[in-house]
Amino acid sequence: MRRSLIRWGWLFAGPTTLAFMIGFVVPFGLGIYLSFTKFTTVTRSTWVGVDNYVRLIGDQTFLHSLWYTSAFALVTSVIINVAAFAVAYMLVKAIRGSNLFRSVFFMPNLIGGIVLGYIWLLLLNGILAYWTRSITYSETYGFWGMVMLVCWQQIGYMMVIYIAGLQSIPEDILEAARVDGATGRQALFQVVIPLVMPAITVCTFLTLTSGFKMFDQNLALTNGAPSRLSELLALNIFNTFYGRPGFEGVGQAKAVIFLLIVAAIAFVQNRFASSRETAQ
């Protein structure tokens, strides 16, 4: 079986692997290489060692977007998860209309980031107009504008995952807690939450990663204004590549740092998940 299948690799794995080379492996390898060069196009590059990495340390917009993005990822991750869990916790109970509510909360996830950005631009600027301001008035306005948008978008997504987690808790465990005289709060914190911990881990990392990677919503809602202060990392990298001639190498080096951050988060998640598996 196995040996005969090996010969069929060209058919089963071949096409995807070829596309994978074109769409990922080659661009990825070139990207790492180019981060150590000064270049304007891929073929016109000169080796400069770690020069790009040194230059990005002195780049104020990058350092600013680094902490701005970290704050954004952290804040959205906390709000989304707490809200999504609370909503899910109520909706798994027999409330009239639960299914309809669930559908409504999930819907924004299907709408793309660019469209969402312009929907919220209308709403937020409309409200802020009463104080004759707009979303690009300061970086704080942009920050909370994006937080609201992303919460609105993702609470429904995480809620769906939490609902599945909550529904998988065996009824007799909750019954046992009740018989033992646990109050509602005790049952929640000592029985329910520990049992949905896997869902909490997954959702926390999903929201953290997507917070760090956020691009479309940022582009549509603030486009970095005022003066690049509301730029998240992804947009900062984009603007370095395509907005500042001569800085392509620095942009690529920033992208490598970005990769390392996202990979570190994924690595921690992996450790979390596997330590839980061995604990059980």
Partner: peptide
């Protein structure tokens, strides 16, 4: 190792390859 490479792809944000991918 092929599977390992695919898993690496899961982690890599688009900005890492955007410039070179457009060129390819």
């Amino acid at each position: 190792s092929l599977l390992g490479a695919f898993l690496l792809n899961l982690v890599v944000p688009f900005q890492m390859v955007m410039f070179t991918l457009a060129w390819v």
